[in-house]
């Protein structure tokens, strides 16, 4: 046990948790906004992958990291706008559309990547962001170097959590989002544009998913690889349930998952040789399934989740 505790309070371990949690936090917040407005976005897995690809490509071609981030955000927003078009405007099945968006985006990501970069034995990489130490705070022992000597995208994720909570709970737009997700009929009577609000929430969510993809290809791996997302999008959907559709709890869920993931990485590295490393890779997924089983009974999804809204249906 003491070995585990020793591991936890290492700077490197804490920093690893933060780094694993960052894309998950973006993705989870993105999915949360979408679902709070009543739209399940199963396109998340493909949207993250396509954003990771466009972000990487834009940076690789232009040399500008921020241009890459912008490209990823725009990609995420565009692809989720497609999802919104199908599910909100046309009222098609959110489940099947989401899978369609994921299949389409993943296929497009692979296709365009192969078209632009060809087949290379060593995948091209980019020079990533440098860490940005925050004065004073980064001098705090242990916590400082792990939390306050990070990449700018990590700080953005940290800022995104309170910001998302503020937007959702304290702004008129956030109120509209919650209304169209809980009771679109009432929202409509109160003069809230249900379709427009849902579109906005899904697109904002997609932009956040784009940031998640950008972090993966531009900070975590510095390259685009085919298994880049490998289920992180699906995990984010589970984390939204686990976080009960709340920004703070969702971010907490992302941190908890990152802790489990960082722990399994450490356990792999620490040479528990007789256990196959795949057992550790499975661990976060099994953990997520079990967590959902424990939480789902009490979890109350937005009432209008999965339900398309049509004005004339009274």
């Amino acid at each position: 046990m003491s070995v585990v505790l020793e591991q936890i309070f290492q700077v490197g371990f804490l920093a690893a948790i933060i780094r694993i949690a960052t894309p998950l936090a973006f993705a989870t917040l993105g999915e949360m906004f979408s679902e709070r407005a009543g739209v399940l976005n199963l396109g998340i897995e493909g949207i993250m992958l396509l954003s990771a690809m466009t972000g990487f490509t834009a940076t690789s071609l232009s040399g500008s990291l921020w241009l890459g981030v912008l490209a990823a955000v725009v990609t995420g927003a565009l692809m989720s706008a497609v999802h919104a078009l199908f599910t909100v405007a046309l009222g098609l099945s959110q489940h099947v559309c989401g899978i369609g968006v994921t299949l389409f985006s993943s296929g497009l990501a692979y296709f365009l990547y192969r078209l632009i970069f060809g087949q290379q034995s060593v995948p091209p990489s980019i020079k990533s962001f440098e860490t940005l130490p925050i004065p004073v705070l980064s001098d705090i022992p242990v916590l400082g170097p792990a939390v306050f000597n990070q990449f700018s995208l990590v700080y953005m994720a940290m800022a995104a959590v309170p910001l998302a909570a503020f937007v959702l709970y304290r702004t008129p737009w956030g109120l509209s989002v919650r209304m169209v997700g809980e009771n679109p009929r009432a929202a409509d009577s109160a003069g809230v544009g249900v379709i427009a609000t849902r579109f906005q929430a899904v697109i904002l969510g997609g932009a956040l998913m784009g940031l998640a993809g950008a972090f993966l290809s531009m900070v975590q791996f510095n390259a685009f690889t085919f298994g880049l997302v490998s289920g992180r999008g699906w995990v984010a959907i589970a984390l939204v349930v686990f976080g009960r559709w709340d920004p703070w709890r969702s971010a907490g869920a992302a941190l908890l998952f990152a802790f489990v993931d960082a722990l399994q990485l450490r356990m792999q590295a620490s040479g528990l040789g007789h256990i196959p490393y795949e057992a550790f890779l499975m661990l976060p997924f099994i953990f997520t399934i079990v967590a959902m089983a424990v939480m789902s009974r009490n979890a109350v999804a937005p009432s209008a989740l999965l339900k398309p809204f049509r004005r004339e249906e009274r």
Binding site: H95, G231, V241, F285, I289, M292, S296, R297
Partner: peptide
């Protein structure tokens, strides 16, 4: 079973399970 007994969304659990099975195969 997770859906019937624990009201866990079947989409997410069946998707997550794909990764678990894949790693089991790799192992």
């Amino acid at each position: 079973t997770l859906r019937v007994k624990f009201s866990v969304d079947d989409v997410v659990s069946s998707l997550l399970l794909n990764s678990v099975i894949f790693y089991a195969l790799m192992a």
